[in-house]
Design a protein around this nucleic acid. Structure first.
Length: 679
DNA sequence: GAGCACTGC
């Protein structure tokens, strides 16, 4: 094939008017399958109606007659709510009655609920209280092909539950051709994975049903030689699509914010100077870091004679669907997170996409009519891509997962029947940390009450430990706030274009000498007291209002957990180094020390020491760490510190949310840990 | 002196 010639290989498509949603035709075979086999794998494109229709069929077929629920899990909160709303509408009932949903902070279900949509993470938490999920007659795991950690854990749990509950109907729904793999997982015996499942067993246990989605043909084009610079190539291709192709919007997949902003700028400049065309090109960015208002712009209808080109990250691969996309440009890369169990450092690196990912991206072009996908790599490179993404559970810090499994009664995590087993060094690293935190004893058993309580708290293990230790340090109230604020993952401060300096000034107003954790505490307390939780206060102080209200919710939820554990929380005892009235009541420096000591008792594994050159070294000494520019410790003097997060991006390793501590405290709160690692 | 794809309890 010659170099890109959009227009040269256009395939005229035969337009077939869709009669009914295809799933209606498959209703009978679905009902037969579900009544014959305990496990059904459903293949169907997004938009085939499987998510909304299947639960209704099941309800009509009497699966809720004995007061049991049909549970449908989703990997994302928005999906759970929007799908629930649609099904309620289709059934003509009020949301929360017969059809409801349950996500963190929002439970819209009642005693009359028969169909319940929920996130898979929440269903796992329900299993902590009701290990056999006895309230459900059917569980449908939707979007299983996305292979999130929660989905993978849930699949393992469901397989285990099925051995004790023959009456439980399981439906796995997936968009790709991993169906055989899902079915094999549920049909083979968990004790001997080396033996292929006997056909007879397979026949009795499960079946696969395919729902042909309403899709349109997509013409896929490759480069004939690799692009030297895919960003430049992207701009070229977008411009030539605009000049040579018929109408339709363009979706471009890039890897991150920087690239996207560059591309948007390049297109604005180039289309401003290109006067030849009657129609304009409107470039729009789409990535998670944008405010929701900015994100919403991609859904706006373009003016007459204007073609929309959306430059997006992977957010547009599964989470966000934009109607009217006819052309897709795929750079072939994605920024992927991985975890190095040896160093305990997470990395974020651009990696080639998988074939599954590439076809998902291409599929975004054919939702409303025939489309085209321009892959900015050769057909040869495509052939060499991995079939599927490495599942998240095989490249993450597993401490939260292992703790959760232990709390679910799975003592031998290594023998747990994972859909994809995580590498043993990841599991070992997680066990090591959980032992150091006191969540597990020397036999690897969950400790009580500490480990069990840590598993219940909706924060990561190190923060859970900090929170549960806070009472003995006399700073529960403050740690609750810090836990809530660090859960926001950095979305605290907010600024519009060109206002970064102003934001920095605002942030300095809340700055506390001891570090970021106390600064976050300070900002939160100003928000709830001086700011009276108002948007105006946030605006003036460059705080993200949505994040701050979320922090209030998270804090309340965590507080309720502590109260359930009979850990007293005194909301009146607030720390405020800037309020002179309080300063006389209690010595803020002493309070700050309690908080810093308490943080050390949970974050001792995240300690570092500043070097004369201003960079940090971890305790082992081998890794050069940099204070992230968002940290107060960026360009400030310190000695020993603990930090909330560590991540390697590009060629640097950054630490974020940093607080000054004393070296002695590390030995005081984690003697065993530091003895071991200094050997 | 400078930056992070995405999701979830």
């Amino acid at each position: 094939m010659a170099d890109f010639e959009p227009g040269s290989s256009f395939i005229p498509a035969l337009y077939k008017p869709p009669s009914l949603l295809p799933i209606a035709q498959h209703r009978e075979s679905l009902q037969y399958a579900i009544e014959t086999f305990p496990v059904t794998v459903v293949i169907g494109q997004t938009g085939s109606g499987k998510t909304t229709q299947i639960p209704q069929f099941l309800d009509q077929a009497g699966w809720c007659s004995d007061g049991k629920l049909i549970g449908v899990t989703q990997p994302r909160r928005v999906a759970a709510t929007t799908v629930a709303l649609r099904v309620a509408e289709e059934l003509g009932c009020e949301i929360g009655k017969e059809v409801g949903y349950s996500i963190r902070f929002e439970d819209l279900t009642s005693t009359s609920t028969r169909i319940k949509f929920l996130t898979d993470g929440l269903l796992i938490r329900e299993a902590l209280v009701d290990p056999l999920l006895t309230r459900y007659s059917v569980i449908m795991v939707d979007e299983a092909h996305e292979r999130s950690i929660s989905t993978d854990v849930l699949l393992g749990l469901l397989k285990k539950i099925r051995k004790r509950r023959a009456d439980l109907q399981i439906i796995i729904s997936s968009a790709t051709l991993q169906a055989e793999e899902f079915l094999r997982f549920f049909t083979q015996s968990g004790d001997d994975k080396s033996q292929p499942a006997k056909e007879a067993v397979k026949e009795e246990t499960g079946t696969i049903i395919s729902f042909e989605g309403r899709t349109y043909p997509i013409d896929i084009l490759y480069l004939d030689s690799p692009a030297e610079n895919y960003l430049e190539k992207t701009i070229d291709v977008v411009l030539s699509i605009h000049e040579q192709e018929g109408s339709g919007d363009i979706l471009v997949f890039l890897t991150g914010r920087e690239e996207i902003d560059q591309a948007v700028q390049a297109i604005s400049e180039r289309s401003a100077t290109a006067n030849s065309h009657s129609t304009g090109l409107q470039p729009l960015p789409l990535y998670a870091g944008l405010s929701s208002e900015e994100q919403m712009l991609v859904f706006d209808k373009t003016p007459e004679n204007t073609r929309k080109v959306v430059f997006a990250t992977n957010i547009a691969e599964a989470s966000v669907t934009i109607e009217g996309i006819v052309f897709v440009v795929d750079c072939g890369f994605v920024k992927q997170r991985a975890y190095n169990p040896r160093t305990g450092i997470e990395t974020l690196t651009a990696t080639p996409v998988s074939k599954a990912s590439a076809s998902q991206r291409a599929g975004r072009a054919g939702r409303t009519r025939p489309g085209k996908c321009f892959r900015l790599y050769t057909e040869d490179s495509f052939t060499n891509l991995p079939e599927a993404n490495v599942p998240e559970i095989q490249r993450s810090n597993l401490a939260p997962v292992v703790l959760q499994l232990k709390a679910l009664g799975i003592d031998n995590v290594v023998r747990f029947d994972f859909f994809s087993a995580p590498p043993s060094d990841l599991v070992a690293k997680a066990l090591e940390l959980l032992y150091a935190l006191g969540a597990l004893d020397e036999y690897g058993k969950l400790t009580r009450p500490l480990g069990a309580r840590m598993a219940e708290l909706a924060v990561e293990p190190m923060m859970a430990k900090t929170l549960l230790a806070s009472h003995s340090f006399g700073c529960t109230n403050e740690i609750l706030t810090i836990a809530a604020m660090t859960s926001l993952d950095g979305a605290v401060w907010f600024h519009h274009d060109g206002e970064r300096k102003k934001m920095e000034t605002s942030r300095r107003k809340f700055a506390v000498e001891e570090g970021d954790h106390l600064t976050l505490l300070n900002a939160y307390q100003a928000f709830v007291t001086k700011g009276k939780k108002e948007t105006k206060f946030c605006h003036e102080n460059h705080l993200n209002y949505k994040s701050m209200t979320r922090a209030v919710s998270i804090r309340n939820q965590l507080k309720r957990y502590l109260e359930r554990f009979n850990i007293p929380v005194d909301d009146a005892m607030t720390f405020d180094p800037q309020d002179p009235a309080r300063r006389t009541q209690q010595d803020p420096a002493r309070k700050a020390e309690k908080i810093r000591r308490c943080l050390t008792s949970g974050y001792f594994a995240h300690a570092a020491r500043m070097q004369p050159d201003g960079t940090f070294r971890n305790v082992a000494g081998g890794t050069i760490l940099h204070a992230h520019p968002s940290s107060l410790m960026f360009n400030r003097k310190a000695d020993w510190v603990i930090f909330h997060e560590i991540m390697e991006t590009g060629d640097k390793t950054f630490i974020k949310d940093i607080t000054k501590v004393e070296k002695d405290w590390l030995f005081e709160y984690a003697p065993e840990f530091y003895q071991l690692s200094t050997k």
